[in-house]
């Protein structure tokens, strides 16, 4: 980084801080009720663009309104997650934001939290247990839409083989289960579509790459790869690219639309990307947080729901403005 860049970054930061401070001043006048409220976010792991994006937006708003905001990082450790969630309940915050790794893991604790008066907001991945609110993507819809697109591109009349390789993260993860269910439901009506591989990549790009390159080997006429998450699908896309089949095989992926992943569409590693825009989800979550703190409550047995709008990014409509950046 040059000195000039550094100085301007510093200047920018100072200006931003000043603006935020000004904003905080006026906002505090507007809504003193939220001051001193407490929100705890328990993510599956920090350090991925999704959670970082959400957390940034929530923290921003929390600071603005004088809400105490904390993060308890489970770092991909499910046992730690339930432990941290239990501790969070003991801390008696006003809201716990839950990021469910499986539909069952936190169910009891969400119930317990709600019973003790803590509002639970589930983010992106839902539990079987209903709580006050849910903000996130509709996995069913994503799975269905991608499957329908695959049918359109590879199915009858396309002249393609109809062979599809699915590369889920883990077969048991909530989003993978929902998307696969929806996709197979669609494929059921289209016997020409053949799922030739459905091997979990453990969310790792390298594993996805190896699986995909082997599948390509066996099925050189593969029509589409459906990667459940943008991050590991990069590996799958690279396998396609390295095999020189970039123009023959469609690579589908989903994700939060962070620039790092998004850029891969421009490079042709990923062809079609269903983005639920994590940055937007972050704002939704922050808004929901404030709405709940102001006393909003769902009807008995229901949840306040905000389903994230989806943007389908393809090579054709790609523009940098469709992706978002994490400020460094």
């Amino acid at each position: 980084m040059t000195l000039l860049k550094k100085t301007s970054a510093l200047l920018g930061a100072t200006v931003m801080t000043a603006l935020v401070a000004l904003g905080a001043g006026s906002a505090a006048h507007a809504d003193d009720r939220l001051k001193g409220k407490r929100v705890i976010f328990v993510p599956i792991a920090m350090g991925i663009s999704l959670t970082e994006g959400w957390s940034r937006r929530m923290a921003e708003q929390a600071e603005l309104f004088g809400i105490e905001y904390e993060v308890r990082d489970a770092a991909f450790d499910m046992k730690a997650m339930s432990e941290l969630f239990a501790s969070a309940i003991n801390d008696k915050p006003d809201i716990i934001v839950a990021h469910n790794p499986t539909v069952q893991l936190l169910a009891r604790q969400i119930k317990k939290a709600e019973e003790s008066g803590i509002k639970v907001m589930q983010i992106n991945l839902s539990s079987v247990q209903n709580s006050t609110a849910f903000v996130g993507a509709d996995w069913n819809r994503i799975g269905r839409e991608i499957a329908e697109d695959i049918v359109k591109q590879c199915g009858e009349g396309s002249g393609k083989s109809g062979k599809v390789a699915i590369v889920p993260g883990q077969l048991t993860a909530a989003d993978s289960v929902l998307m696969n269910d929806a996709a197979f439901e669609v494929f059921k009506g289209h016997p020409e579509i053949e799922v030739v591989s459905n091997q979990a990549s453990d969310w790792e790009p390298e594993k996805a790459r190896q699986i995909t390159s082997t599948v390509l080997q066996q099925h050189p006429d593969l029509c589409a790869v459906f990667g459940h998450w943008g991050v590991h699908t990069i590996g799958a896309g690279n396998a396609v690219k390295d095999a020189g089949k970039q123009d023959d095989v469609l690579v589908y992926a989903t994700g939060g639309g962070n620039r790092l992943i998004c850029d891969n569409i421009e490079q042709g590693v990923i062809d079609r990307y269903w983005s639920y825009n994590a940055d937007g989800q972050g704002r939704d979550a922050a808004t929901m947080m404030r709405v709940i703190l102001q006393g909003a409550a769902p009807k008995e047995g229901e949840m306040l729901r905000v389903d994230s709008p989806l943007i389908v990014i393809t090579e054709e409509n790609y523009s940098p403005s469709l992706c978002w950046d994490m400020p460094s």
Binding site: G47, E70, R72, D73, A74, A75, A80, L84, S87
Partner: peptide, 16 residues
């Protein structure tokens, strides 16, 4: 240590 660090908001990488 593990629990307290995470509870205090330290992130997984730091805890590890």
């Amino acid at each position: 240590l593990n629990n307290a660090l995470r509870n205090a908001g330290f992130r997984g990488d730091f805890v590890q």
